[in-house]
Amino acid sequence: MGVSVDAVFGTASSQAILAWERQGLLGPDVTLIHSTGLTSEAWRAIGDTGTTIALAPTSDAQIGLETAIPAVDEALGAGVRPGLSIDVEVALASDMFTQMRALHAIQRMRAVNAAYGTGAEPRRISTFDVLDFATLQGARTNGLGDVTGSLTPGKQADLLVIRAQDINNMPLNDAVGTVVLGSDARNVDTVFIAGQVRKWAGDLLDVDLAALRDEAAASRDRILNARA
């Protein structure tokens, strides 16, 4: 059974992480979400204990959580390959394409800025890195590394098929680059979850979209009316 801790920010969270380390509470079954503005000692504790990290690239940057910079460099520096998360779907993009692209752009901007004028080579992450964060590391971070996250014999048959010859991502030259930098939700053609088809030829299956829209609108109206 795993434990996820949200709102891990700054000095107070850093102190808590060190206390959890002393108490033997950290480890691979613990996921710390965000992890922005943590001290170097806190990152040392995270790395030493194998604690997992879930970054929320658009949330940190858009909402402005602590430093507002997704802590990808800090995580990698501590030997942790992070997973990606969305955080708040009502305010942020709910697809992993956006999370991958945001993290890729922010980290590379940060790397180039740090090296600017020094003659040093910027330490950029790659498209392969962010795809790994969104898939294999995302599953591991959620305690599902033995179940999903990669196409491996013995794992659950979760498969997402992306059209690579659409107007926004053709022509196909590099598969990973196309997924991370050229594609978005409109290009998802087919989805299998545990071997069951949930989307086929661009259409969701077994979902009454009209009823779902009505239900979402009714939920919104109920909340707004309760606040009035």
Rank of each mutant, 00 (worst) to 15 (best):
D166F: 07
S150E: 05
D73P: 06
A175F: 14
G27F: 01
S219P: 10
A114P: 11
Q196L: 02
L159E: 04
S35V: 13
Q137I: 02
S126H: 14
A78Q: 02
T127L: 08
P122D: 03
D146E: 08
T127Y: 14
V72N: 06
G117F: 06
A218Q: 03
P82F: 15
T135E: 05
D146R: 04
A7T: 08
I106E: 04
T127V: 14
T39A: 05
I17M: 04
Q196A: 09
Q165Y: 14
G27R: 01
V88N: 10
D60C: 12
R44T: 01
V130H: 05
G64L: 03
I69A: 01
A157N: 03
A42M: 04
H34V: 00
N169E: 01
V188R: 07
T39G: 08
T127W: 08
I106R: 10
L205W: 04
A218D: 05
S94K: 07
F9M: 11
V188Y: 00
G83Q: 03
A228K: 15
L160P: 03
G27M: 00
D95N: 14
V188L: 04
D166T: 13
V176R: 08
R222H: 14
I86Y: 07
I69R: 05
G195D: 09
L224F: 10
S4V: 02
G154E: 02
D189K: 00
I86A: 14
L224C: 04
A78E: 00
T118Q: 08
P153Y: 02
T118L: 07
K199F: 03
E215S: 13
K155A: 08
A226I: 11
A42E: 02
Q107M: 09
I193T: 04
L160R: 10
M170A: 15
E41A: 12
V176D: 05
R220S: 10
T148K: 10
A93F: 07
V88M: 11
A226H: 12
